[in-house]
Design a protein around this nucleic acid. Structure first.
Length: 280
DNA sequence: GCCCAGGTATAAA
DNA sequence: TTTATACATGGG
């Protein structure tokens, strides 16, 4: 099977899947194909130039995957707007011009990014996989991401046994709050960014970083775009190649960008500075 | 075996 | 308000 999913510029399957937005995908080293999992769906995708193909999966899921990869949005214009008059963003955009913001299911994104704290990507992926295997619906060779109700069967002790560590109590609190209501898609859509962030941060273990990641990688809130994926790309660009950007330059740009929230930006960049050993 | 991670809660300054 | 630590665990 080889169904065309999309054809157009400004989209890179690999850049998008490997930009740290999602934790359930696999790359076939031989063919370069990616298997992506989202909720209880799975698909195998390949990209040849501007053409993206669904190579394995359900044809009726094609509209879902188009939405998931945010393929119908004009990223040319979006990127221009983001990079205008901003050297750091311009650098980020040219470093990874094919990144799209995923529209992942809300609960899966929330749980994944709670798992992400003080953790590295290979281990986050391992944890997510174990969570699916233990509590998600068996799909024949793989497991769906558990629903809030399914994950409500888990208590702190069993989550710790899975290896969640101190994040176990955070997961329990998140599941409890989501099951209690107030997190339906229509309700979240009604809230502005600030209200949404405050709502998420009521959950134990959800700080600004996780809240923003959920808004970015699930809810399409572009206004918080610079706070995560692009900044990370900039840091990688600064660390791995090209003209090195000083931490000071990044901080100044971030302070300008975040305005009143410069403190957060500093803290945020401090972490990345430490992580990537940039600056002093 | 050691190091450390797509942070956050909490204490201390 | 800002800055420093503890945290659980296992992938690399």
């Amino acid at each position: 099977m080889k169904q065309i999913l999309w054809s157009g510029a400004d989209f890179s399957l690999s850049q998008t899947l490997e930009s740290g937005q999602c934790f359930r995908f696999e790359k076939d080293a031989g063919t370069g194909a990616y298997t992506a999992f989202a909720g209880d769906r799975a698909g195998v995708f390949m990209q040849e130039g501007p053409d993206v193909f669904l190579c394995k999966g359900r044809v009726e899921d094609i509209p879902f995957w188009r939405q998931y990869f945010d393929l119908e949005r004009d990223y040319g214009t979006l990127k221009e707007r983001l990079a205008a008059g901003d050297a750091v963003m311009a650098e980020a955009v040219s470093f990874a011009p094919g990144i799209h913001l995923l529209r992942q299911e809300f609960f899966e994104t929330l749980i994944s990014f709670i798992l992400s704290q003080n953790n590295h990507i290979p281990r986050i992926r391992g944890l997510a996989a174990r969570l699916c295997a233990e509590y998600g619906k068996e799909m024949g060779g793989w497991s769906a991401f558990p629903t809030p109700e399914e994950l409500a069967r888990a208590d702190e002790a069993s989550l710790r046994r899975l290896g969640c560590g101190f994040r176990a109590v955070y997961l329990v609190d998140a599941v409890k709050k989501v099951c209690a209501g107030g997190y339906a898609a229509e309700e979240l859509e009604r809230l502005g960014t600030e209200e949404l962030r405050a709502r998420f941060m009521e959950i134990k273990g959800v700080g600004r970083k996780v809240a923003d990641c959920v808004m970015l990688f699930s809810l399409g809130r572009y206004e918080v775009f610079p706070a995560d994926v692009w900044i990370r790309r900039v840091m990688e660009a600064a660390y791995f190649g090209g003209e090195p950007l000083s931490l000071r330059a990044l901080q100044e740009t971030a302070a300008a960008r975040f305005g009143k929230d410069a403190g957060f930006a500093q803290q945020y960049l401090f972490h990345y500075g430490r992580m990537k050993k940039i600056g002093k």
